[in-house]
């Protein structure tokens, strides 16, 4: 029986993992070229890949968790090259490690307690404005 548009089942088997190679290459390339941005593509891809009810909170958490964990090796690969190229020195990086770690942990703990929807819209607008400024 043909499934309706609203019904999706999680694809099983090895075949589906191959679908992630090209998007992974694209996300990583962007991450390396711009020092960020890999997460946007990764989250898009995982939103389609991890099927289920759109309103499913558990699915949203799974997408977010998978995105973060996927982007870490991309960022690591990029960071090593940036360091090797001499684009960043240890005196640039060391002062930001502790505050970044503290902030990240606090944000992760607050994740389930804060409605981030409005925040995301505000920051998207900020990103657009910043992008325009950078183009000038």
């Amino acid at each position: 029986m043909k499934k309706s548009r609203g019904e999706k089942t999680e694809r099983k088997g090895r075949g589906r993992l191959y679908h992630l190679i090209a998007p992974g290459l694209l996300a990583g390339g962007i991450n390396g070229l711009f020092g960020c941005g890999g997460g946007i593509i990764t989250m898009l891809v995982l939103s389609r890949y991890l099927s289920g009810d759109r309103g499913d909170k558990e699915r949203t958490r799974r997408i977010f968790a998978s995105t973060v964990l996927s982007v870490i090796p991309m960022s690591l690969g990029s960071a090593i090259v940036y360091g090797t190229l001499g684009a960043v020195e240890s005196e640039d990086v060391l002062p930001l490690i502790l505050p970044a770690l503290l902030g990240g942990m606090a944000g992760a703990l607050l994740l389930s307690r804060i409605n981030t929807g409005l925040l995301k819209k505000i920051f998207s607008a900020l990103v657009i404005w910043s992008g325009i400024r950078l183009m000038m």
């Binding site: 993992l17 992630l20 190679i21 090209a22 998007p23 992974g24 290459l25 694209l26 996300a27 990583g28 390339g29 962007i30 991450n31 390396g32 070229l33 711009f34 890999g38 990764t42 891809v45 995982l46 890949y49 991890l50 958490r61 799974r62 977010f64 968790a65 998978s66 973060v68 964990l69 996927s70 982007v71 870490i72 090796p73 991309m74 960022s75 690591l76 690969g77 990029s78 090593i80 090259v81 940036y82 190229l85």
Partner: peptide, 22 residues
């Protein structure tokens, strides 16, 4: 919480191309 199979594929592919992008 994560789909580790997806993470592994995305992460490895991404790490390789990230170095190229950098």
């Amino acid at each position: 919480r994560a789909d580790l199979g997806a993470v592994a594929v995305l992460g490895v592919a991404g790490a390789v191309s990230a170095a190229g992008g950098a």
